[in-house]
Write a protein that binds this DNA or RNA. Structure first.
Lengths: 354, 354
DNA sequence: GCGCCGCATGTGAACGTGCACATCGGAGTC
DNA sequence: GACTCCGATGTGCACGTTCACATGCGGCGC
């Protein structure tokens, strides 16, 4: 890590007054027009003679003019900036979505500024929101999948459109996106169709929106099949927890399959079961959720629910921009979650496959 | 994914003129002082009576006054914004570093705005930089580990300090950070000390700074031990490529160990070797680089070089802010990379361990 | 008692842009 | 030929903040 590319401010310019950046007035003077004409060129005003326009553009080029965003924002009170509130810790999914969000925003001439949540306490959220708000954001995208985040956000009443990457938000006007639920249902039904009757769900933390959706999908499938339900095991998304959970679960042996709410926990589970002498998938079948890039390469390759993170990011930003009155023209249909069946799931020992 | 938290602009306020946001003049009027006094309160000017200050603060509270950043930026020409140029695709390492960067920047009162690189073509880089530059960034952090990125950047001469998260940058004033090199050396020496004499390096793509550093560390160690060097195998960082590489390598069988330039490729390698009937670590030892969270949970648990990404992020931003004349008080000593020895590496068959 | 200094505060201008309105000239209409 | 209308451009101000400078006032030294 190191530094390079020096600071070089002063270059040999046509005529710069006091060493300051050229303004539209400087451009106007050079082009022999008024500053307003320059402004019109900048904003693609219709009634302006092509010849005049060209002269202005040439002048801009000669002076290396760059519009001053602060001045523009001051007068229009449009910052063209979107805030992103993040409560993730480098998980694969959200990261991919953020890239898509940033791409689309940039394409529409918006800037994206981010604020990380060190914790999901109301204070931390308020602090991060205050930081973004100071930036005069025109919209906010929340990638902070804890339900409580939205409660806090609702109270802050920040006066700009808010969209969440996640499916639902308890306290608020809500239309459950069913990707998560149906994905979880698919995973569970897959295990059931293999012949499993005793399935444990290793869920995400209480209060996480995705955790709840996936748990609901699991419970729906289990109930529909009239199976006994084990109480879900609550985890924290990490592979380390999966490992720990496996050691706990291995003592019980009252199940033949585990549906983990994400791939990391699933991978940790496989590791833990292996250490406890339980073979996957012969003794225990495991299904994950997310289809992170390594999922297909671990041993055994992980059966998991594939999600389209990038598409989710695109839809989120499209929704936000629409809410802000910007027409993006994007109309991605949500790519339905689907199951990637690999080797970590198999019929239970002695089961006749349906 | 959905929307919530409505837009609610107009609230019952003391006296708002034309429905616009309160300015320092409104606050001044309410507090019975001049606008300049309000400005002084905002900027913690020393000579101001505590009593006056309190009156101003109360007025601010009553009006729910929030400073207008655009106006401030306009007059000070300090945007307090740092740009981050990203050429990663959700890899674990950089993501962790970004969070650290954002945290530290926020702590210092700076905003972070990001631009993703869809490709590393000069055009894409120029476009992303133009976008950031329009935002009047005061500094730039580059997380785009391709050498060519820096060449393009150097040409753009953007007039603000630039710092890279990565170690080195070919075309520029350079002090090689030795973390990467020594980390790779550690990994290689570990294999050598186990008794391996024929070691293949699965490198990152040509032109990537980290790829080069890690390759150098590998070559240094191999040369110091007077071993024959196989030409490195160039990969693309993905687990999929690792899988492919394993199938290619398995045909040769002229080696007993592979040092992969990152964990994803290492995990793909293990998968590929397994499919080709080669046991890891009995037939082939594998060492990775990064210590991503799943590394300890795959089978066999991966021996790898642990990096402190968060620390790297902190050091990067400290460096940039220092370059910008901001004293952060941060003085993190770089945490040296170290080797996590796990089960994917073992002595070659028939080797007497030294 | 006078002048000086420094604290606390006020006054006016400036930053660079967009908006509302004014102006000017030429084409079209009767 | 006078009037209207519209396209093309100019003039002045406003946005909300900070900066440079001015002002008033009390205390202190001689």
């Amino acid at each position: 890590m190191n530094v390079h590319i020096g600071v070089e401010r002063s270059r040999v310019m046509p005529e710069l007054d006091g060493g300051r950046q050229p303004s539209i007035r400087d451009v106007a003077r050079l082009a022999g027009v008024s500053h307003q004409t320059v402004s019109r060129v900048l904003n693609d005003h219709p009634s302006i003679r092509p010849e005049t326009k060209q002269r202005v553009i040439d002048a801009m080029g000669e002076l290396k003019y760059r519009p001053n965003r602060a001045a523009r924002t001051l007068v229009t009170s449009r910052s063209r900036t979107i805030g992103v509130l993040l409560a993730t810790r480098g998980e694969y999914g959200p990261t991919s979505s953020i890239a898509a969000i940033e791409d689309a925003a940039r394409e529409q001439g918006y800037w994206v500024t981010t604020a990380n949540l060190p914790a999901t306490t109301p204070e931390a959220i308020a602090e991060a929101v205050a930081h973004l708000r100071e930036q005069d954001i025109e919209g906010l995208i929340v990638i902070a999948p804890q339900v409580r985040t939205f409660d806090v956000l609702a109270e802050l009443a920040l006066g700009v459109p808010v969209v969440s990457l996640q499916s639902a938000a308890g306290a608020l006007r809500t239309e459950i996106a069913d990707d998560q639920v149906t994905g979880a249902r698919l995973a569970t039904e897959h295990l059931i169709s293999l012949g499993h009757r005793e399935i444990v769900h290793l869920a995400g933390p209480r209060d996480w929106i995705e955790a709840e959706s996936r748990m609901r999908g699991f419970l729906d499938a289990v109930n529909d099949a009239d199976l006994m339900t084990h109480p879900p095991f609550l985890g924290d998304w990490t592979a380390d927890f999966g490992y720990y959970a496996a050691r706990e679960l291995a003592r019980r042996r009252d199940f033949t399959a585990v549906f983990a709410a994400n791939d990391l926990m699933a991978i940790g589970l496989m590791h833990g079961f292996r250490d406890m002498g339980l073979d996957v998938p012969r003794a225990v079948s495991i299904v994950g959720f997310d289809d992170i890039p390594v999922a297909r390469h671990v041993w055994p390759p992980l059966t998991t629910v594939h999600q389209d993170f990038r598409g989710a990011g695109r839809r989120t930003i499209a929704l936000l921009l629409a809410e802000m009155g910007v027409d993006t023209g994007y109309a991605d249909a949500p790519v339905a979650a689907h199951l990637e069946v690999r080797a970590s799931s198999a019929p239970p020992i002695g089961a006749q496959v349906g």
